[in-house]
Design a protein around this nucleic acid. Structure first.
Length: 292
DNA sequence: TCCTCGAATCC
DNA sequence: CCACCTTTCGAGGA
C-alpha cells in the first residue's frame, strides 16, 4: 500500500500544478493585475474596475467561484479587502468555499477579535511569545508600542506586526516574482553521520536539480547543504562561489565538502539531508570571442 | 556591506 | 498530520 502511494505522489503533484495554472489563468482575466502567491493562492487587483465598490467586487468573486466550480469541480475561498493583508486574512476566515468581504471601514471590527496568529507571519513561536505577556487577540496586540515590538521581534518584523494589527499594509502586488533558490531535502532511511551515506542521498537531489538547471537555463552562485538532526535541529553550511556557474560536478564536489565540514562538527546523527542552490540568474549569453 | 548560519513561517 | 519546499529575517563576523 505504501509503495503504491509513493509511486503516485509525484505525478499527482505535477497534475495539480497544471490545474493550478489553468485556474490562475482564469482568475487573472477578472482583474487588472495578479500576484501568484503559491500554487493555490493568488492576489487579484480589481481596484480600478470596482473603484472601491465592494458590491462589484463581490460579483466578481462570485463569478470566479462559479467558473472554477463549473470548469474544475473545485471550490475555493475568496477574501476581499482594501489591501493584500486584509484580503488574505479574510480568505482564511471562512474555509472551505468561503467569501468574506471586509470593507475599509470594517477592518478594525474584523481584526480586533481575531487571535494574533491569524496574521500571516505570526506562527507558533511568536504566538507563544505573545501569550507569555498576555496578548492573545489582535486588539490586545495593538496595546504594544512599536518600540517594544521592535525590541522583542526585530526591526522589520516588529514594524510589520505593529502595522498588521492595525490593518495597515502598503505592499504592492508583485506580478513576476523571481525564484531565489531551489532546494531538495529528504529523510534518510536511517539516521547517520556517514559521509558516504549522505552523499548517496544527496546524489538523487543533485540529479533533480541538474534537470531543473538545464531546463530553465539558469546559473547559481551559492551552494548550501542542510542537515536536520535526530532532535530536529537544523544545521547548514553554504559557500558562495566567486562566479556564477551551472557546473554540476562543481555542485557535487562542493556539497560533499560542505557535508564533510558539517558532519565533522556534529556528534548527533542526521535524520534528513538536503541541498540548495541560491543566487540564481538566467544563464548569460555565450560570450563571444570579442567580449572574451 | 557581504557572507554564513540558523530560526521561523508557510505550503 | 507529516514531509517537503521557499522565503525572509536577524545576528555575528569578515
Amino acid at each position: 500500500m505504501k509503495d503504491t502511494e509513493a509511486v503516485f505522489l509525484p505525478s499527482r503533484r505535477e497534475h495539480s500544478k497544471e490545474i493550478s495554472e489553468k485556474i490562475m489563468e482564469l482568475v487573472k482575466k477578472y482583474g487588472e493585475r495578479m500576484e501568484y502567491a503559491s500554487v493555490d493562492e493568488a492576489y487579484l487587483e480589481i481596484s480600478k474596475k470596482t473603484k472601491g465598490d465592494y458590491n462589484k467586487a463581490k460579483e466578481i468573486a462570485e463569478k470566479i467561484k462559479k467558473e472554477i466550480l463549473k470548469k474544475f469541480k473545485l471550490t475555493c475561498s475568496v477574501g476581499i479587502g482594501p489591501n493584500k493583508l486584509i484580503a488574505k486574512i479574510a480568505s482564511d476566515f471562512q474555509k472551505p468555499n468561503g467569501l468574506t468581504i471586509v470593507k475599509s471601514r470594517e477592518v478594525k471590527k474584523f481584526l480586533d477579535p481575531l487571535k494574533v496568529d491569524k496574521i500571516p507571519g505570526i506562527g507558533k513561536k511568536k504566538k507563544e511569545k505573545l501569550i507569555e505577556i498576555n496578548i492573545m487577540t489582535i486588539k490586545e496586540l495593538k496595546k504594544l508600542t512599536k518600540k517594544l515590538l521592535k525590541e522583542q521581534f526585530g526591526e522589520k518584523i516588529g514594524a510589520f506586526m505593529y502595522n498588521a494589527a492595525r490593518g495597515i499594509d502598503e505592499k504592492e502586488l508583485v506580478e513576476e516574482k523571481e525564484q531565489k533558490q531551489i532546494s531538495r531535502i529528504s529523510t534518510l532511511k536511517e539516521n547517520t553521520l556517514n559521509l558516504t551515506e549522505i552523499v548517496k542521498e544527496i546524489e538523487k537531489h543533485i540529479i533533480e536539480l541538474e534537470n531543473e538547471i538545464n531546463e530553465r537555463k539558469i546559473e547559481f552562485k551559492t551552494i548550501g547543504v542542510i542537515g536536520i538532526d535526530s532532535k530536529i535541529k537544523t544545521h547548514t553550511k553554504s559557500k558562495t562561489l566567486d562566479q556564477y556557474t551551472d557546473n554540476i560536478e562543481l555542485l557535487k564536489k562542493t556539497s560533499e565538502e560542505l557535508f564533510k565540514g558539517l558532519t565533522s562538527e556534529l556528534d548527533i546523527k542526521l535524520r534528513r539531508v538536503g541541498i540548495k542552490i541560491e543566487k540564481l540568474r538566467e544563464k548569460q549569453q555565450q560570450k563571444s570571442l570579442f567580449e572574451f
